[in-house]
């Protein structure tokens, strides 16, 4: 299957197979007017299967969100059809308004206008906890 290569934009590559839609939603790519291609289950020598997202415009993507989903994802910036930058990701220390706290006893469940903030507690386990109530960030599937 072939998708046209992009001239100016972003290619989010090496997404674990099945994760592209989650990333699409977290990055709010549905708000974009430009063409966005989601390629699922593409063949990969390294990963077997992988997902890819191609965004056909120059824009800033939230690297913290991508790093939270998977720090092994690669973000390639394309200009005039050429790869000009490969962005390296890491697990962000702080996640702001990326995931919501699910604890009904947490102040975020009733107080309007405050951000949902999670702090990285264990990088090895990729464990984040709410800064208000210390509840673990729940995986959203």
């Amino acid at each position: 299957m072939n998708i046209d290569s992009i001239k100016n934009g972003i290619v989010i590559d090496h997404i674990k197979a099945g994760q592209a839609m989650k990333l699409y939603s977290l990055l709010e790519l549905d708000r974009l007017e430009c063409p966005v291609a989601i390629i699922k289950n593409a063949q990969s020598k390294k990963m077997g299967k992988k997902d890819i997202i191609k965004i056909d415009t120059k824009m800033e993507v939230d690297l913290d969100i991508i790093g939270y989903v998977d720090p092994d994802i690669t973000v390639n910036v394309i200009e005039e059809g050429k790869l000009v930058e490969k962005k390296h990701l890491q697990l962000p220390e702080i996640l702001k308004d990326v995931v919501k706290c699910k604890n009904p006893r947490c102040i975020t469940s009733t107080e309007n206008g405050i951000p949902h903030v999670f702090r990285l507690c264990d990088a090895e386990k990729r464990l984040y906890r709410c800064i208000y109530c210390e509840t673990k960030a729940a995986e959203e599937n």
Partner: peptide, 9 residues
């Protein structure tokens, strides 16, 4: 406060 984290807010 009965809600966890309210004093931090």
């Amino acid at each position: 406060h009965p809600k966890e984290g309210a004093p931090l807010v």
